[in-house]
Computed example of a mutant assay.
Amino acid sequence: MDKRTDSGVSPVIGTFLLLALSVVMITLVTISVMGIMGSYTPVYERSVGFTIDVNSSNDSALITPVSGTDLPFLQSYDVYTDNGHWYSPSPGGVTVDKFNSTVTFINIVGHFPEYVNALVFSGKVAVEGGVIVVVPAGGGYYVVGTDGYNTTTEFADSFNEWYNTYYNTGLNPGDPGYDVVTVSNKDLEFSNENPIIVGDQPIELSPDNIHDLSTGNIKILIKEGGNIVRAPGYYDALLQIGNASDHGVTQVTIEKKAGAPFTLNGSNIDGVTSPLIMVTSKGSLVVQKDATLIVENNLNVNGDGFGGGIYVANNGELVVSGTLRANSNSAKYGGGIYKASGGSVTTQGTGNIIYSGNTAVIAGPNIYNAL
């Protein structure tokens, strides 16, 4: 039942960001909606993010495109819910009525140049008193789990199973294209075109989490090409390197590979309490020559607020021989990078750290060096 306040109180407006992830031929939620959308068959991949501002006093919602790599190319879009269809002839916002507890799903079809139509969001929702809970079609966000993994292959398989379920690829283990994370000598290669959406705790690269790694110093190679993003409602780090309980140091190296860089994206979600990458006291992060690592769009201004992009702990190490880009991150200290006392951040050879649009509430918009 919707909860409303009638006497002398402004309407409660709940705002929610939809991580719009377009999927080729994603299965729609109901047969009736498939019928309605018959002329808009989505066959292209496009990425656009939307906000939903819910006004529970009149059962309406303002849906507005706000982010995504394809936002500049969005010309118009259609919104479909259980209660009808709304069309926005421009990239501006559209007001959807009958947006209450009877709504169980949202599908948004974007229209782009050259007659390209793409399903930019499809998800189940629950609306209760202006609060939205989104469960994307195909299942929930990637869950790291608390028990760890017996082998590196088992660890990689957890990504592959989630990815093919979430994005409804129709592929089975062994099919070409099924594996978006592969293993070779305990090195990981990420090749996911759509993001891995982390929703419960950091992806931890350490013997404590991946049990077949050695108990001494180890090295893990990650090739460029993957991208990891923060899910709505998740406020911790996306990647953790090493664990304080490890006997040795875990070194993670980003290696050059043809294609896109390795990217971690905080999705500009409010309430975050951690950087995107935590390099612990038993961790080392190396960006190899000619490789590129991007950390962007993280708002770590709550809690301690140490580091928007990367936190390097005491005895932790960040070495950049290639390119590290820290874009549009915020923190209390160190919008781009926070280096704790005793930590190390260095560039080698032609290595370069490029800061763009980072801010700090207190000190160090790009990097903060704790004494």
Rank of each mutant, 00 (worst) to 15 (best):
I26Y: 05
T95I: 13
F50I: 07
K124C: 10
S284I: 14
F99L: 00
Y77H: 00
L188D: 00
N194A: 15
S191I: 02
Y333V: 07
N243Q: 11
S47P: 15
L221P: 09
L17M: 07
G139V: 01
N164V: 04
T69W: 01
Y115I: 09
E161I: 09
S341V: 10
G322Q: 07
I362E: 03
E114H: 13
N369Q: 14
N300C: 03
E255G: 07
N329V: 07
Y368W: 05
V183N: 08
K186T: 06
V33F: 00
P261Q: 10
A231F: 05
I277L: 14
G283K: 12
L238N: 00
P261L: 13
G259M: 12
R325C: 14
G38W: 03
K98R: 11
P91V: 01
S122H: 04
D53M: 03
T151P: 13
V143K: 09
H247I: 10
D270T: 08
R4Q: 08
S344P: 06
I203R: 00
G139P: 06
T95V: 11
L213S: 10
K332L: 04
I31W: 07
A118E: 01
I269Y: 10
N150K: 05
V29Y: 11
S32C: 10
Y77E: 04
V125Q: 02
N160L: 13
G170Q: 04
T151I: 05
M34H: 14
Y77D: 03
G226V: 03
G35A: 15
V103F: 04
F105S: 08
T215D: 15
V301M: 15
D246V: 15
P11E: 13
V272S: 11
P136V: 00
Y142D: 06
V181Y: 06
M1S: 10
G335M: 07
S267Q: 02
V43S: 13
E255S: 09
D187L: 06
Y87E: 04
N265E: 12
L285A: 05
T215P: 09
F190H: 02
Y77R: 02
T263K: 02
E114W: 07
M34I: 04
A258N: 12
G308C: 05
V131R: 09
I26L: 09
V133C: 09
V125H: 11
L205P: 08
V33L: 08
N315S: 12
N265K: 07
S76P: 03
Y178I: 11
L19N: 07
V133I: 08
W86P: 07
I196H: 08
V180N: 14
P207N: 02
N172D: 12
G174K: 03
T273C: 12
G8W: 13
V252G: 04
G271W: 12
A231L: 03
N369E: 15
K3Q: 14
N100L: 09
S184A: 10
D212V: 06
V295P: 03
S158E: 00
M278S: 01
